[in-house]
Each structure stands twice: as structure tokens, then as C-alpha cells.
């Protein structure tokens, strides 16, 4: 019937990457609830998993992973923080950040090298990714709330920067440890 589809997934690598990408998406969904309690503010793991999607899966599969995650949420499957999915979450104040994940992962995967760890490249990739996420998130937040740029930054960016720095610092050794597990060929 559909021979093209059959031959595409016929090879084991393709099926394995499909499952891995779904898993990273599930981790991203779960990451909104997983937090490490340190100090007064717990560190939520969702961005860390977004970074890792790009670092571990690369540009193509990483983008696919986040794209399917967003599509699942868009269609109302319960994958976003706060439980409810649906278009409502994209229209809500945090919608811009969610949409920003997609180009961010693409860029992170593009800049970093999936098969070999290079600390500088990985860090650069994550900084660029974060910039993209904040650019999307903040502009949507600003349109929606009508706040000035300064206020939007104070609410939607500055409080999260220390956490982001910690996550980037952690993502480099995590990616280094896990890359051999994922790219075994």
C-alpha cells in the first residue's frame, strides 16, 4: 500500500530514532513537573530537556521531537504544565516560550556536534537556543500584557537566568555522558 513509508521505517536505526525522539518529547512533557529542590526556588527541568533534545538527537530528530510534543499539546493531549493542553496554551502568556522551543532545538542541534562533545560549541549552541526561546516568549508576553520592554524583561527573563546558567553548566557533562548511549553505530 504505502511502500515508501514501509521502506523508511524498515531500517532499525530509523525506528530507534523515532522511539528516542518520542522519549525526549515525553521527557520534555514530564520535565515541567520534575524539579530539583535546591534553595528557595526549585529548578524545573523542562528547559534542560529541551537543551538535551538538541544536543543528543541533533537538529533533525530534535526538531521532530519538539514538533510532535507541541502538536500533541496543541491537539489537547495532556503534555503541558498545568494539565490542560489545546490551543489555549499557545494563546496564553507562556505560549511564546513553547513555540520558541522549536527553532531553539533546531539551532542547538545545528551548532553542536551530535557525535562528538565540544564544550565550547555545546555552550554556544545552548546560549543561542535560550536567546531564541526568550525572543519568542518575551515578544508574545509583551503583546499580550501590553507592558513596557523593561517590565517584560523583569518578569519574563531576569528571574530565570540563574537557573538557565545552571542548566547549561549541567547539560554539557550530561550530554557527554549520554551521547555514547544514543549514537552507538
Amino acid at each position: 500500500m504505502n511502500e515508501k513509508g514501509l521502506s523508511n521505517i524498515g531500517s532499525s536505526t530509523s525506528l530507534r530514532m523515532t522511539v528516542y525522539a518520542s522519549l525526549m518529547a515525553a521527557l520534555t512533557a514530564a520535565g515541567a513537573y520534575l524539579a530539583i529542590p535546591i534553595g528557595p526556588v526549585p529548578i524545573v527541568l523542562q528547559n534542560l530537556f529541551i537543551f538535551l533534545s538538541g544536543l543528543l538527537l541533533g537538529s533533525g530528530w530534535g526538531t521532530a521531537s519538539v514538533g510532535v510534543y507541541l502538536l500533541a499539546g496543541f491537539l489537547g493531549l495532556p503534555v503541558f504544565a498545568g494539565g490542560v493542553g489545546g490551543i489555549g496554551r499557545f494563546a496564553g502568556p507562556t505560549g511564546g516560550y513553547l513555540l520558541g522551543f522549536l527553532p531553539a532545538v533546531c539551532v542547538i542541534g545545528f551548532i553542536s556536534n551530535v557525535s562528538k562533545t565540544n564544550v565550547v560549541r555545546d555552550l554556544l549552541a545552548m546560549v543561542c537556543g535560550s536567546l531564541i526561546i526568550y525572543a519568542c516568549g518575551l515578544s508574545w508576553l509583551k503583546i499580550l500584557t501590553g507592558m513596557t520592554l523593561g517590565k517584560t524583561l523583569a518578569v519574563g527573563m531576569y528571574p530565570f537566568l540563574p537557573g538557565d546558567a545552571l542548566k547549561m553548566a549541567a547539560a554539557v557533562p550530561i550530554a557527554k555522558a549520554l551521547r555514547p548511549v544514543i549514537n552507538r553505530e
Binding site: 525506528l15 530539583i36 555522558a177
Partner: peptide, 28 residues
């Protein structure tokens, strides 16, 4: 905090991917 993040995420993701390998085998 970096140590805690690292020590939590590495075993978590590694075990999840090990399960994924089993799932791929089962699907094939």
C-alpha cells in the same frame, strides 16, 4: 546545584533510553 542536576538526569535518561531499546526490540 550543577552536581545535583547532573546526578539526577544522567541515570534517569540512561534508564529511560534502556527501556526504549527494549521497546524497539519488541516492536521489531
Amino acid at each position: 546545584p550543577v552536581y545535583r542536576l547532573k546526578m539526577f538526569s544522567i541515570p534517569l535518561i540512561r534508564r529511560i533510553f534502556e527501556r526504549a531499546d527494549k521497546l524497539v526490540l519488541a516492536m521489531e
